[in-house]
Amino acid sequence: MESEQIIAALKEATTVPVEAVREATSRRDEMVPILTGVVARAADTPMAALAGEDGLLFLAVHLLGSWRATSAYRTVADLLAQDAGKIDTLLGDAVTLTIHRVMFNLFDGDPGPLMDLVENPAADCHVRRRMLDTMGMLTAAGRIERSVMSDYLLRLQGNLAGDGDGIVSSGWAELIAQLGFAELRGAVEQSFCAGIVDPQFLSREDFERMLADAQAGDLMVGVGDEFRPFGDIVAELGGWTVRDDWDDEAGEEEIEQEVARIAQTLRLREPALAGWDAPGSSAMAFPGMPSIGVGGQQTVLNPYRYVGRNDPCPCGSGRKFKRCCGQWR
């Protein structure tokens, strides 16, 4: 395959195109600047002009990460500084599941771009939090000095603008625990008392538990592979949908009909799996959402309780859930 054919295959793919990925990997030196250019264009181009290129961009970022193409580090960082809506459309669940691991691989020795993202009040809050995790991974690996990281985290105390929901600040406190910085415990407690760190994201008990684990030698212990460097793209993303065939053809009425149909099927098959609330509890008011009566009360059915945002929508449209019935919900 020529490079143009590889790009075309990546652009048209809805799942990881194994053959095109293998061809691209065999021509890595040629493809790195091409894919870096794809990322740079996405960062500089309005979302409306990128229609149909979300899959290509998604695969380009992950290929560069799997290849440890450090020359693309700053270009990907520039992309991640874009507004939350654009980032969600282009990268989807990668924002929370893989991008911090990709950036670990791309790191060129300068933490400046990561720091800029963490402190950027206009950047997506989940990106900002995950860049803290990238810095934590680099610190645990000895690629950022602990003293440098400790000083930086102290400087961030109370200075994370644009974090209205407390997601970044909670990540800040968790990272202090994950790296075993007991000397910053007081700064975290002050942030708890000031309401900067939200207990729904991180409790004091969890902070102390993680801090104790880190001091015992277990640094950056996440869930599963959460803090492992990004690996082979086929193995990592084999079950993902990487591009949505979303053409806005499904109107609200059509989506409501699909919601009602799937809810009815689940109600007949296994009501317990479909309920948001326990039998007898008050129903949550969502217009058009089917419900069942228990003891004179209504319990709303949630037919999507076990469907992930990146999963194919169960209505059968072929789109991602978040771009189909998940959008209506």
Rank of each mutant, 00 (worst) to 15 (best):
E2R: 15
S3T: 15
L10S: 10
E19N: 09
A20D: 06
V21Q: 04
S26K: 09
M31F: 01
L35K: 02
T45G: 02
M47K: 13
A49I: 03
A49H: 12
L50T: 02
G52D: 05
E53K: 13
L64R: 08
G65N: 03
R74Y: 05
R74T: 12
A94N: 14
T96L: 13
T98H: 14
I99D: 04
I99Q: 11
M103K: 01
D108C: 13
P113S: 06
M115L: 08
L117N: 04
E119H: 04
E119L: 15
N120Y: 00
A122E: 12
D124K: 04
V127E: 03
R128L: 03
R128F: 01
R130G: 13
L132I: 10
D133H: 09
M135E: 07
T139N: 10
A140G: 04
A141F: 10
R143K: 15
S147L: 12
S147F: 11
M149S: 11
S150F: 02
Q157F: 01
D163E: 10
G164H: 11
V168R: 00
A173N: 02
L175N: 15
L184R: 11
R185W: 07
S191G: 08
C193Q: 15
C193P: 08
G195C: 06
P199K: 07
R204I: 13
E205K: 09
F207G: 10
F207W: 04
E208C: 07
R209S: 14
M210G: 05
L211H: 04
A212H: 12
D213G: 08
A216Y: 05
A216C: 06
G224W: 04
D225E: 12
E226L: 01
E226C: 05
G231R: 10
A235L: 13
L237N: 07
R243K: 13
D244E: 05
W246C: 15
G251K: 09
E252H: 11
E256C: 15
R261W: 04
I262P: 00
I262C: 00
P271W: 02
S281W: 11
G288V: 00
S291F: 09
G296Y: 15
Q298V: 05
P303F: 00
R305F: 08
Y306Q: 09
C315G: 08
R319T: 01
F321M: 03
C325S: 08
G326A: 00
W328T: 06
W328R: 14
